[in-house]
Design a protein around this nucleic acid. Sequence first.
DNA 1: TTGTGATTTGTTATATCATAACTATCTATC
DNA 2: GATAGATAGTTATGATATAACAAATCACAA
Lengths: 159, 159
Amino acid sequence: MDSIGFASHDHTRCIASGLEAVDSYCAQNRLQFTAVRRRVLEILLQQHHALGAYEILEYLRQEGLGSQPPVAYRALDFLVKHGFVHKIERLNAFIACMHPGEPHTPVFMICRKCASVAEAQREPMQGQLGAVARAAGFLIERTVVEAEGLCPKCQDPSE
Amino acid sequence: MDSIGFASHDHTRCIASGLEAVDSYCAQNRLQFTAVRRRVLEILLQQHHALGAYEILEYLRQEGLGSQPPVAYRALDFLVKHGFVHKIERLNAFIACMHPGEPHTPVFMICRKCASVAEAQREPMQGQLGAVARAAGFLIERTVVEAEGLCPKCQDPSE
DNA sequence: TTGTGATTTGTTATATCATAACTATCTATC
DNA sequence: GATAGATAGTTATGATATAACAAATCACAA
C-alpha cells in the first residue's frame, strides 16, 4: 500500500519516467505506442490531474493531432486497457497511472475542493471488498474504488 | 457486513417493505414522497436491477407521469440524496437501496454477464481504503466501491 | 522491397447521459 | 384563502461516448 499522495514531487522527472516506462513496456510487448497515444499520455502526465476526454481532444486539436472524439477515445481506450491511464468513474475523467507497467489495483482519493486526485494501491482480494465477494460467491475481475472528500491542503482552515 | 447477495427472495414482499420503509422515513423527516418519486422508487424495486435514467423516464412517460429528462433526474436526485436509491457509477445507472433509512456505506458487485447487481455493506473508515486515506491525510466524505466480475450463476459452466 | 493482412487513424453521424433556466402548480402553514 | 417554499412541466442545450466505414500506416514475411 503506497501513495504518492498529495505531496509535491519532481514533476519534470515524473513525466519523463512515465513516458519511458510505457515506451519500454510497449517495445517489450509489441504494442504500438503511436504519436497520438504518446501525446495523450504526455498531456495527462503534464497536467497531473483528471482530464475529460474532450479536454484532451482540445489539446490534440490545437496540435493538429486529431479533431474528432473517436481519436481521443481510442487513444484513451488503449492507454486504459494496458493500465497506463485510469478512468475516474465518478468524474468521467482520466488520469495518468503512477505505476505504469506494473500490475496493480488502484484506489483514488478525489478532493472535492481542489479537484486533485491521488492514486494509491490495494490488494484486490483482501479487505472488506474481498470478504464481501467471497461471502457472495462473486468473482472479482476489476474494481472501482474511489473516495471523495478533502485532501490535506483543503482541510487546512488557514488556506 | 451483510449481503442479500445474488440469492433469490420474496420479491413482492421486498417491494412492499421498501416502499413502506421510505414512506415512514419521509413522514418522520418531513420529506415529500410525491407520486413521481414514489413511482420511480417502485420501478427500481420492481425491476431489481440497475436502470438508466432514460429507461426509468420511459416508464414514467407511458404512465403520463412526466416525459422530459429533468422529471426523472429530479426524482432520482431526491432518492439518491436520502439514500433510498444508489447510483452505480460504472454503469451510469440507478438501483434501489436494500436498506433504506439506515445510514450505511454500500459496496456493489456487478455481474458483467447477466448485469445483476448485488449490494453489500462496509465500514467506511476500516479496511484498506481507510488505511490509505489515513496515510495520505485525506478526509473521506463519500466512497464509490464497485466490483465487476461474475456472479455465482454466471460462473457456473453448466448454464 | 514489396505484397498482404492487421492495426490505427480520419471523419461523419448519432447515441447516451445530464442539467440550466424558466414557468406553472402544488403543499404546508399561517 | 394568502403566501412562501418546494415540486413538477417544458424547452433547450451541454457533456460524454460510440457505431460505421474509408483511408492511411505498420508489421511481417515472401
